[in-house]
Simulated assay, not measured.
Amino acid sequence: MSFDLHLNGLRAVVTGGTQGLGAAVVKTLAQAGARVATSARSLPLQSVEGVTYVAADLSTAEGTRHFSQTVLKDWGGVDILINALGGSKTPGGGFAAISDEHWFAEFNLNLMPAVRMDRALLPNMLAQGSGVIIHVSSIQRVLPLPESTTAYAAAKAALTTYSKSLAREVTSKGVRVLSVAPGWIETEASVAFTQRTAAHAGTDYEGGKKIIMDWLGGIPVGRPAKPQEVADLIAFLASPRSASITGTEYRIDGGTVPTV
């Protein structure tokens, strides 16, 4: 039995697709035959063959406008939009260490790019009567770490709620909307953070990983997810194979969150 995702020739846009999870999603969709365009503040040294890269800072309205208009000009519309951009730069120290600037920065990185990209590209999907939008949220929305991820977690919670509302609005018009909530993913940024944690604690990399897993209350599978594992889930959900899936969130966290 073939498990062709039937993505060949579909137009797919991925935000933040040059590093971490976004890069894995770009590669996976391209290998499945999709036409892929992605963005980053700076273009990668090594690109995926056949992928269109657009330099744009999506934490700004101007950057989002440039990226979306470039795609619409080149393709006329899109079939798949994966809002994978995200991250946190707020320092540790709990609520008192989070300034207004930190709060705005987290929402401008983790919520507003998705809102703006949807607003720019969704009208075309509605006009053609088909499309898929996937928002990459995080288990942090239900499992925030007060020491360091309060603002990030709040922004991701807002993204999930927005995604649910958007699905209720447009699913009946032919556009599926859903979200994916990863747990800890071993991306380049995560590796660097683990190394810093290990150095601060006077241990090695594996010791640093254990410290972080303890912060999360443990990961039953015993390790963080690989970017490719999450990308495979996203590619499946974006494909016609998932035509009846919409308005929900898929958690992929190795069992970290113990509740239903």
Rank of each mutant, 00 (worst) to 15 (best):
D118T: 05
R196T: 09
K164F: 08
K210D: 10
L43M: 11
G129D: 13
G247L: 05
A151I: 02
K27D: 06
P91W: 12
A23R: 08
L121A: 09
E62C: 00
T187D: 05
P91I: 07
L5A: 06
Y162V: 14
V136R: 06
E169Y: 12
L166A: 08
T161I: 13
A56G: 12
W103N: 03
A56P: 10
L145A: 15
M112A: 01
A97P: 03
P146C: 15
Q228M: 12
G129H: 07
G93V: 06
S148N: 13
V25W: 07
A235Q: 09
P123N: 04
I245Y: 10
S68T: 15
N83P: 06
S239D: 08
Q195L: 09
L5T: 13
R11I: 01
E49T: 12
A97G: 10
Q19N: 14
Y152H: 08
V54K: 05
R41G: 12
E147W: 11
V78I: 15
A114T: 14
P220E: 08
G208Q: 00
L58I: 12
A189Q: 15
G222L: 07
T70P: 04
A114N: 07
A97Q: 14
T64M: 05
R65H: 03
R223Y: 14
A61D: 01
S179A: 10
G174I: 15
L81W: 00
R35T: 11
S244I: 14
L85C: 08
K173H: 13
P113T: 05
S59T: 14
S239Y: 09
A61H: 07
A192H: 07
R41M: 04
P123V: 04
G17N: 10
T90P: 04
L233Y: 00
A198R: 02
V54H: 05
D57N: 10
T256Q: 04
I252F: 03
G208L: 04
I185S: 13
A97M: 10
P123R: 00
A55I: 04
V175T: 11
I134D: 02
D4R: 07
T171S: 06
K89L: 15
I82A: 02
I82Y: 10
P144C: 02
S172R: 14
E188M: 11
P182H: 01
A40L: 00
S2C: 08
G247V: 01
M117A: 14
F107H: 11
L21H: 01
H135C: 06
G9C: 11
P123F: 08
G202H: 06
S148H: 05
L85F: 09
G254S: 12
H200I: 15
V48K: 12
V230W: 03
I245K: 03
Q128D: 02
A23G: 02
G50W: 04
L21M: 01
H6Q: 13
A225P: 02
R251M: 04
A151R: 07
N108Q: 08
G77E: 04
G255M: 01
A61F: 01
G9F: 05
A154F: 15
Y162W: 13
L126F: 12
A225M: 03
Q69D: 09
L143S: 07
M112I: 03
A40P: 01
S88G: 15
A61S: 08
V175Q: 03
Y152W: 03
A24I: 13
G33Y: 01
Y250F: 07
A37D: 00
E206Q: 14
A30Q: 05
A84Q: 03
N108H: 10
H135T: 11
A12H: 00
L178Q: 09
D100V: 12
V136N: 11
G207M: 09
G183R: 02
G76P: 10
T259P: 07
